[in-house]
Amino acid sequence: RYRTTFTSYQLEELERAFQKTHYPDVFTREELAMRLDLTEARVQVWFQNRRAKWRK
């Protein structure tokens, strides 16, 4: 599977959502995914990776 490349707008929005909550529920993820034209799975994985980065 190829690596997803996020646009700067998508990253800004994902980071903004991350500032609000590190653990968005499925509705929040679905809403973000639709708004950013991504799949909910991509959003979920982004948050997993972002939390890992945050913990370091």
Rank of each mutant, 00 (worst) to 15 (best):
K56D: 07
A17T: 09
R42L: 13
F27V: 15
T5M: 12
N49K: 06
K20F: 05
E30W: 12
F47D: 01
A17F: 08
Q48F: 03
F6Q: 07
A41D: 14
A52F: 08
Q10I: 03
S8M: 08
Q10T: 02
E30K: 09
L36T: 08
T21R: 04
F18C: 01
R29Q: 09
E40L: 06
R55S: 15
W46H: 02
K53C: 12
M34A: 11
S8W: 03
V45M: 10
R29I: 09
F47H: 01
L38N: 00
R1K: 15
Q44L: 12
E40Q: 09
T4Y: 04
R35Y: 06
Q44M: 08
R55C: 11
F27C: 12
R51E: 08
E30I: 07
K20N: 05
Q48L: 09
T5E: 13
R42A: 10
E15G: 02
A52M: 12
R29H: 08
E12L: 05
T39E: 14
V26E: 13
A17I: 10
R50L: 00
E12Q: 05
V43T: 03
F27L: 08
L14Y: 01
M34E: 11
E40I: 13
Y2L: 14
R3L: 13
T4C: 06
P24Q: 01
F27M: 14
V45G: 09
A41C: 10
F18D: 01
R35I: 03
T39D: 10
L14M: 10
R3D: 10
T7K: 03
E30T: 12
R16N: 05
V45D: 14
Q10P: 00
V26S: 11
L11Y: 04
A17C: 09
P24E: 04
L32M: 05
K53T: 11
W54G: 11
A41Y: 08
V26R: 07
T5K: 05
T4I: 08
R50A: 13
L32H: 00
E40K: 06
F6Y: 13
M34G: 15
A52G: 09
Q19I: 12
E31W: 08
D25K: 03
T7G: 05
E40G: 07
L38A: 10
E31F: 08
R1A: 15
R1P: 06
R3T: 15
T28W: 08
R51W: 09
T4K: 03
R35T: 07
K56R: 06
T5Q: 09
Q48T: 11
W46N: 01
T21S: 07
A33E: 01
R35C: 11
V43A: 02
Q48S: 15
Q19W: 11
H22Q: 14
D37G: 12
L11N: 06
S8Y: 04
T4L: 14
T5I: 08
E40A: 07
R51S: 04
F6R: 02
E30M: 03
R16S: 13
A52R: 06
R50G: 00
N49H: 08
S8H: 15
A52W: 04
L32T: 04
P24N: 02
L32P: 01
T39L: 10
E31I: 06
R51N: 11
V45F: 04
R16Q: 13
K56I: 08
L14I: 04
E15N: 06
A41Q: 12
A41T: 13
A33D: 00
R16K: 06
A33L: 01
R29F: 06
L11V: 08
L11K: 10
T5G: 10
F47I: 01
T28V: 11
F47M: 05
R42E: 15
F47Y: 05
V43K: 01
K20M: 12
T39C: 08
D25W: 00
R51H: 07
R50V: 01
T21E: 13
W46Y: 08
L32N: 00
F18N: 01
N49S: 15
L38G: 02
E12V: 06
Q48A: 10
T4R: 03
F18Q: 00
R42P: 06
H22L: 11
Q44N: 15
R3K: 13
L14Q: 00
E30R: 12
A33K: 10
V43C: 03
F6I: 09
Q44D: 08
F18T: 00
L11H: 06
M34Y: 07
H22P: 12
T21F: 03
S8F: 09
R55D: 12
M34R: 15
K56N: 06
F6N: 04
M34K: 15
T39Y: 04
N49E: 15
R42K: 08
T39V: 12
A41F: 02
M34H: 14
E15K: 02
N49C: 10
Q19A: 15
V26M: 07
D37W: 04
Q10V: 03
D37Y: 10
A41W: 06
E15H: 02
E31L: 13
